[in-house]
């Protein structure tokens, strides 16, 4: 049994470069997923049967199929229609579509957690449906949303590792490349695991700070 971590530190810059790509992908994809997720949540809580059905089918399909299968499908569907997209684009789009369903579910639960009388009072005060949602219901769902959104964000960042299978040059792909040079896969992947863990840890802490800031200013009892 022999571990040699010095060689991993030699290649740390390459791993950090991969980490940067992972972060870029996640920021772009998850910001998009956040906005689209809000739309899905509003559709799922709307009074229109058609909108509800479309959103429900979307969420059910995305959440019940493994991300890796989805990524492969997107990878092969583009050339099927004669479109050439970079692996990076496909990776970002598929993570966005995947994240939308998960964020949408959390936001829907958040909306449902707010007492219905709040929504009704908003309408009674003369606000429209969307305005009531935006100004009355959603701000009050924040205490519920922060912990679950944090967990979801962390698992979506973890899912981004799967994009290495379609040659997106992110952290896991960088690890595989370094492994090919150093022939010390265990040490390299342990280092990468620590890097991912640091990202998860940072997200958890940033989110709880944001959460307490939002709760300090937005929630009126």
């Amino acid at each position: 049994m022999k571990f040699d971590f010095t060689i991993v530190f030699q290649y740390l810059p390459q791993l950090l470069w991969g980490l940067l790509v992972t972060l870029e992908i996640c920021v772009v994809a998850l910001c998009g997923a956040f906005v689209l997720g809000l739309a899905v949540a509003l559709m799922r809580t709307s009074s229109s049967v058609v909108l509800r059905a479309i959103a429900t089918v979307y969420v059910d399909i995305i959440r019940n199929i493994p991300f890796m299968v989805q990524v492969f499908m997107f990878f092969y569907i583009a050339p099927f229609f004669g479109v050439r997209l970079s692996a990076m684009t496909i990776g970002i789009v598929s993570l966005m579509i995947f994240g939308t369903a998960y964020y949408g579910e959390v936001m829907r639960a958040g909306i449902n957690a707010v007492a219905r009388s709040q929504y009704e009072s908003g309408l009674a005060a003369g606000l429209g449906h969307l305005e009531t949602m935006w100004r009355i219901v959603l701000p009050q769902s924040i205490p519920f949303l922060v912990p679950t959104m944090t967990n979801n964000t962390i698992s979506l960042v973890k899912e981004s590792a799967i994009l290495s299978t379609i040659t997106v040059p992110e952290l896991t792909a960088a690890a595989q490349r370094v492994t090919g040079i150093t022939f010390s896969p265990f040490e390299v992947f342990l280092m990468v695991a620590v890097l991912y863990w640091l990202v998860s840890f940072a997200i958890a802490n940033i989110a709880s700070t944001i959460g307490s800031l939002l709760l300090g200013t937005r929630i009126v009892r």
Binding site: A161, I162, P185, F186, F189, S200, F201
Partner: peptide, 22 residues
């Protein structure tokens, strides 16, 4: 904390590659 903060792919690679080391 560590397991929940690490992608499943990485855990799989770790378990797979730790075997020859051990």
């Amino acid at each position: 904390s560590f397991i929940r903060g690490t992608p499943t792919v990485i855990l799989i690679f770790l378990c797979y590659y730790v075997l020859p080391v051990l």
